[in-house]
Amino acid sequence: MENLHIVFWLLKDISWCMIWKPLGIAMIFPTLIISLVIAWRTRQFMSELCHNVAISLWISANSYWMISEFFHFDAQVIVGPITFKHLALIPFVSGLLILAFYYLYYLPRNKESEEIIN
């Protein structure tokens, strides 16, 4: 499943690069769904869960950014220097915060249990 996920992800990003709107938009769904399934299946391991949720958020941000460029609202100003493209920072930063939680809070407090699992 993880390997198929990468194929969909690459097809989505290649479509973005080549401005193939229908294929790019269509590839969002299998890419995101599989990343969520992978996160769900690894939920018993905090390391895997945090990383896979961060990947799902990355795909969400990346997909939103792609759509904003496809439909030419990426450069529209919301307020001041902030454009609609900048809204992709919400899921990007959310993923980063999840990883920060894992590495800065969870891992130091659960190092022994993580070593046993790995």
Rank of each mutant, 00 (worst) to 15 (best):
H72P: 08
N62E: 10
V93E: 10
S68E: 05
P81H: 08
F92G: 04
V79E: 05
I67P: 10
I38M: 08
E48R: 08
V93I: 15
T42A: 15
F29T: 04
S113F: 04
S60Q: 05
L89R: 07
V7N: 09
K85E: 13
R43F: 11
L4H: 08
K111N: 10
W65F: 13
W58G: 06
E2I: 12
P91S: 03
W20I: 14
E112L: 09
H51M: 12
I78F: 00
E48Q: 12
K12C: 13
C50L: 08
F101M: 11
E112A: 15
L87H: 01
R109N: 07
I90E: 04
I34F: 10
Y105N: 11
V53H: 03
F92D: 02
F92V: 03
T31L: 00
I117N: 12
D74Q: 13
N110F: 00
I55D: 02
P81Q: 10
S68K: 01
T83M: 07
F29D: 03
Q76W: 08
L87A: 05
W65P: 01
S63G: 05
H5L: 15
A75M: 12
S68F: 07
W9A: 13
D13C: 06
T42M: 13
H86Q: 11
Y105Q: 06
K111V: 07
F92Y: 10
L11S: 09
W9H: 13
S35C: 04
I25E: 00
C17N: 09
L32H: 01
A88P: 02
N3S: 13
I98L: 07
L107S: 14
C17H: 10
I90Y: 04
V93P: 06
L10N: 09
E48K: 11
I34P: 05
I117F: 11
L11I: 13
I34L: 13
S47P: 07
L99I: 08
I19R: 15
Y106V: 00
I38P: 01
M18L: 14
L11Q: 08
L4I: 06
N110P: 00
L104I: 11
H72E: 15
P91W: 03
L97S: 01
I59S: 00
H5T: 11
M18T: 14
S68A: 12
M1F: 14
D13N: 14
L104G: 14
I6M: 13
K111R: 13
N52D: 07
F8G: 02
E115C: 10
M1Q: 11
P30M: 02
I19A: 13
P91H: 03
Q44M: 12
F92H: 05
V53R: 01
H51A: 14
I116R: 07
E115N: 11
I82S: 03
S60M: 12
I82E: 08
